[in-house]
Amino acid sequence: MRRIFTALLLSCGFANAAHAQADSLMNMLNDAPVKKEAVSATFKATRIINGSSVENLGAGVLDFRISHRFGQLNQGAENFFGLDNATTRLGLDYGITKWLMIGLGHSTLNKENDGFLKARILSQKNAGMPVTLSYAGSVSVQTTKAPTLPAGDKWLFTNRLYYTNQVLIARKISNALSLQLMPTLVHYNLVDSTKFSNNTLAIGIGGRIKVSKRIAITGEYYYRVTNADLFYSGQKTYNALAIGVDIETGGHVFQMMLTNSPGITDRTFIGQTTDSWEKGALHFGFNISRVFTIVKPREFRDKAEEPRSW
């Protein structure tokens, strides 16, 4: 009995004497449950190239976008390989919450005004949810003058409207590789002829491969499942394919691309691309985005502004 007592006393004593080492303290901290984190930066920008990516702007962030597509490369030296002509879209996007953003834009092509909304429904997590899923919807109105119509026909406002509904499903497979699928339905209120459907169903596939921390190669292709034979302004249409490079600089992402679509709105490039890669009717273009923080995150509010030295 005495022996047990001594042993107990000794062991208690040892426990007392044992110094807690920094390592064991660190182990205590490691006991905290692993946080499930949403995967960030699946793509560098809110657009893969022409179409939407699953990326949203942060809450309170305003993004001013200038998208530019030059004329066809195969126009020859006479038109400076397309650089003499260009279409532009100016856009303002705003992040209302972390998961909801809206945007307005004006394009020179067809003098089109468009508005869109993008909502993230599911977020890819480091454990659990394998994909990010968003909905993107847009409406656009063409404001060009009425075309010559057969006698008796009217050029209604509704003739100029177009709608796009998209589901964006993306996965950041690794730090370098992200892929996205975009089942898309475009509704054209007016098509060239009654033999075409007003609805075009398309499946888009897009992706990016990071080649360095700040440079990524991107690609985007919209395959039309229905209405692929659609004519637009009397011309045959092609599936839209674009390849690009994302270059990230301090405050913005610069995107350069080659695409067969001069249009920048969803409805134009998905169903009304009349140029083809085979003929070399490609357009060089770029997107510039500049973000401004309108509403600061909570941690940075109500802080006396320190004078800045310029």
Binding site: S40, G58, V61, E248, G250, V291, T293, K296, F300
Partner: peptide, 10 residues
Amino acid sequence: KFERELMKEH
């Protein structure tokens, strides 16, 4: 946490 979302991403 950063004042600018893009800064955090970078």
